[in-house]
Amino acid sequence: MAGHSKWSQIKRKKGANDSKRSAMYSKHIRAIQAAVRSGGTGDPAGNLSLKNAIAAAKAATVPVDNIDNAIKRAVGAGEGAADYKEQTYEGYGPGGTAIFIETLTDNVNRTVADIRAVFNKRGGSLGTSGSVAWQFEKKGVLLLTDTSEQAQETAIEYGAEDIQESDEGLEISTGPADLYAVQDALTAAGFAIESAQITMIPSNTVAVNSDDAKKLMTLIDALEDLDDVQNVYSNADLPDEE
């Protein structure tokens, strides 16, 4: 779930319990294998979708061996292998928040039925295509703990669009195509990257009270628990205690 800060999302993912972590790993493996099949190659240098999927998996601490094995299996898979397709869904959550969902599915009817059921049960509503997508923009986001002027200047030189500084470090936004140029430049300059991934950033956020925030987090957790759901984004600005 993405709100006003990516730091909270990364910490939440890394802090998942073992069962959650196992399910999360499975989602990343599915994304990697789908990227190999759609891109026609297991070489991330020639397959941007695969490069993005690998970066996201590493950010979620998926072991390198799992990633490599997933690529090998996908490269060797024949016509009988599952053909997962990207599908997005949009909806509304408590407090008037917008929710954007990315899925990988081999059965669209099952996926939309599962997502609708979660919305109906958790106080949200499934919207039509385009109902909230306009409120989100695809961006590259890098997180690093170094807040030095050199780090910021390096990021700007290689394509950073925005830099937010906090007590935790720097949150750097780029265009999707510039993410890896900025990442490689920072790495070459000796800066340790906490996370680098393609994500969806809301153009505006909606402040929600504590009660709605708890309901929203319950809704998002339920959506993320669905096997076909890869990512859930919201434009909620959550209270600090949440």
Rank of each mutant, 00 (worst) to 15 (best):
M1R: 06
G3A: 08
K13E: 13
G15S: 10
S19N: 11
S19C: 09
S22Q: 14
A23P: 01
R30L: 09
A35E: 07
S38T: 13
G39H: 08
G40K: 04
G46E: 08
G46L: 07
S49D: 14
L50T: 04
K51A: 14
I67A: 05
R73H: 12
G78N: 14
T88A: 13
Y89N: 00
G91E: 01
Y92H: 13
Y92P: 05
A98S: 14
I99A: 04
N107G: 01
A113R: 14
R116V: 01
V118L: 03
N120Y: 06
K121G: 03
R122Y: 15
G123Y: 08
S125G: 10
T128R: 15
G130E: 11
A133C: 02
E153A: 14
T154W: 04
E168F: 06
I172H: 05
L179R: 07
Y180Q: 12
Y180D: 12
Y180F: 15
L186Q: 06
I193P: 09
E194P: 04
T205K: 05
S210I: 13
D212Q: 11
K215M: 06
K215I: 02
L216A: 09
L216W: 06
I220E: 12
Q230R: 06
D237K: 15
P239F: 09
P239G: 04
D240V: 10
